[in-house]
Design a protein around this nucleic acid. Structure first.
Lengths: 236, 236
DNA sequence: CCTGCAAATAACCAACGAGTTACTTTGCGG
DNA sequence: CCGCAAAGTAACTCGTTGGTTATTTGCAGG
């Protein structure tokens, strides 16, 4: 595929390995950064997230992750075991971070219509702010959720949003603002899908429609549209 | 990653290469299938589609494609040049096939509300019938549409659906059935997104919500819901 | 019937990339 | 201040994997 890799080794031995000419396994140590296991581990995880989001599981290169993290490849194996385990760690960490953000929402005090509007806008903004999460989800779905399914914690981390949604929906129906017979899970899938598809497929959609969907105008147009679709659907 | 490959060679030389023991480059020809360049090319393209949809660009294996197509790897390079060019050919062919299906829709005679319902249902059914297309789009979007952008034909293949949508929308507004000020491109993105997200992310969503979204019941529930959302939004 | 080109094939190869080996160096508890 | 476990490093290995080389074979047209 012509992607460069394995340069680091050559360059390094060029710089540091001069005396090693005929010798084998003689580690001449250059200045190494002061020890900090927690930070190193974090650096590797962050670098791995970037790499997996950009290239998917198979496209990601372990050497590149190590380089991005400015850490040695061996440490990566030391802390995470192997590439797949590292990918799993990235997934778990990603879900944790995303759920964290969702918890900050409290819609209890708002009137139902406003709460619903805020929820749709929050979902849109959330995806816009975390484009890497969309890429990670796409990757994982191409893999048929093979890894999320194996991570015991993730199924237990139900999104708090569905619960929120259910109560907002009930309040709105009570007051006669919202229609009856709405399945909260499918409503959530719709709210998410309306924004997700826009972001996940921006690139192909922009080419097909010949519109720059990444532009500020299209972004705010989309945001407004998503709110209108959901509120238009829900109103009696 | 522990995925098997390169077996074909071993097996073949086991079966056919008996006499080749010490010899080099002695092509003993086994019964080769009667010549049929067009069919062979087609077989390779179909096999490549399957492989790319299942594993993405980087995950796909050229040897596996050749094996699936029951063709020699060299032919694959003969007809398509290299892996990336083959991927591009798959993309182009996929768009052609998908557009073909869309052309069969003629909604002109139906009243606008019914036409719109049919359009939403068609989109849903279309995605359900062509799950490989969703996977291919996901892959291509992770690659930031790098390849579709380079294929000159694809930007020219605007979906006929947006045109259809525009006229149905106009007719509905004329009759007072639909609201005004609807952007047809964003409406299309919504119609597509409502179904696409459901299919593209079935696997992770099923795990998170602990529901079997692939089941018949959930499928028809989703289909009905998508129609209701769009018609609910459009009605005045 | 022969001849030359395209279709088809098996064996080969170099690069790549995940994972290892074999060390050196810190820094902390005793 | 010592020893030792953990942090860190460079260099190596070997199966995989795109891509090639060297051939043979079928068949259309002279």
């Amino acid at each position: 595929m012509g992607r460069p890799a394995g340069e680091a080794r050559l360059v390094n031995s060029e710089i540091h390995g001069r005396a090693t000419a005929g010798l084998k396994r003689q580690a001449k140590r250059p200045a190494q950064r002061t020890r900090n296991p927690e930070l190193t581990k974090r650096d590797i995880l962050v670098a791995a997230r970037e790499e997996f989001c950009e290239h998917g599981l198979d496209g990601a290169r372990v050497d590149r992750i190590a380089k991005r993290a400015a850490a040695n490849k061996r440490l990566l194996y030391h802390y995470f075991g192997n590439k797949e385990a590292l990918y799993s760690a990235v997934l778990l960490d990603a879900y944790r971070e995303i759920r964290q953000g969702e918890l900050k929402l409290h819609l209890g005090d708002l009137p139902p219509v406003e709460a619903m509007r805020k929820l749709v806008e929050f979902t849109f903004d959330h995806f816009r702010r975390h484009p890497w999460f969309i890429r990670l989800l796409s990757t994982e779905n191409i893999l048929r959720a093979e890894y999320v399914r194996r991570i015991a914690e993730i199924p237990r981390m139900h999104s708090p949003i569905v619960g929120l949604l259910r109560s907002v929906l009930a309040a709105g129906q009570e007051r006669g603002d919202f229609r009856d017979g709405v399945d909260p899970v499918h409503l959530y899938i719709s709210i998410a899908g309306l924004s997700y598809f826009f972001f996940s497929n921006t690139h192909t959609l922009s080419v097909i429609f010949n519109v720059a969907l990444q532009s500020k105008e299209q972004m705010s147009l989309r945001r407004r549209h998503a709110v209108e679709v959901i509120l238009g659907y829900l109103r009696v």
